[in-house]
Amino acid sequence: MATKKKNTTGARLTRTTLLHIGLSLIALLMILPFTWMILTSLKLLEEVEFDSWLPTIFQWRNYPDVFRMRGIEFGRWYWNSIFVAAWVTFLQVFTSSLAAFSFSRLEWKGRDRVFFMYLSTMMLPGLVMMIPNYQNMIRLGLVNSYLGLIIPSAFSAFGTFLMRQFMMNIPKSLDEAAEIDGASKWQLYWEIILPLARPAMITLTIFTFIGNYNSMFWPLVMMKSPDKYTLPIGMLAFQSSQGQQTNLLMAAVAMSVLPMIIIFILMQKQLVKGIMLGGVKG
């Protein structure tokens, strides 16, 4: 058996090639739906019926047409989604890093108990909280406002957990050195720990941004005016009113997936690291 390891180059090459073919086939299956999506979005409506995936003439104007449809404020929804997700991400990363700093670098009585409370709520289904949260939003008059979307999502137990796991691994000696230099706790956080925790922050940023960009339940119950819709519920409205216009629908789908693909390609290294760190996508 041990001889198996010392294969000739030729046999090894065959093996590698076979492996590549297998992996390519799986990868092909993964991207086929996306391929169909792009190709269909470039078709004429009549061509959608055809068996062939390829459009006869590429209808690039389908894309601007999506923005021009009456009653479909696609551009606005795009903006809203990114706007809300950006605020949420910013706030969440900030508050999570503060809390994580407190949980990982400071010693205080009852710390672990509070942290355990945080952890245990992570297991609760979001639905349990949604209903009273909605009731509270009514009381606060935040229904159908951006604030109502942003604020409840700005605090996350998961984000705190992720950041804490990372900060725990930063050597304690740094704190001591800083203390000897006379740095305050805030300086320690702001000037030493936070820059070092950048990888975790980037990961959390990606998770939170994508999670919010994609979230559907909360905006669905919260937002009433079409000009305040985010993309997921906007797409839902698009589908329910113009669902049979397959080519334009696919153009809209492609455009709404695009930011995610860009972020993914740019950030994939940090993302992969982050998943190993925190275990799950938020």
């Binding site: 009653g71 909605y134 009514i138 008059g141 229904v143 159908n144 669905l220 119950v221 009433k224 005016s225 079409p226 819709y229 519920i233 906007g234 409205a237 329910s240 009113s241």
Partner: peptide, 17 residues
């Protein structure tokens, strides 16, 4: 004009919205 169909209209109406 409100052109989108939304199942949540009812609760939004009773929520003062």
């Amino acid at each position: 004009l409100d052109t989108a169909s939304n199942q949540s209209t009812l609760i939004q109406a009773v929520s003062g919205m």
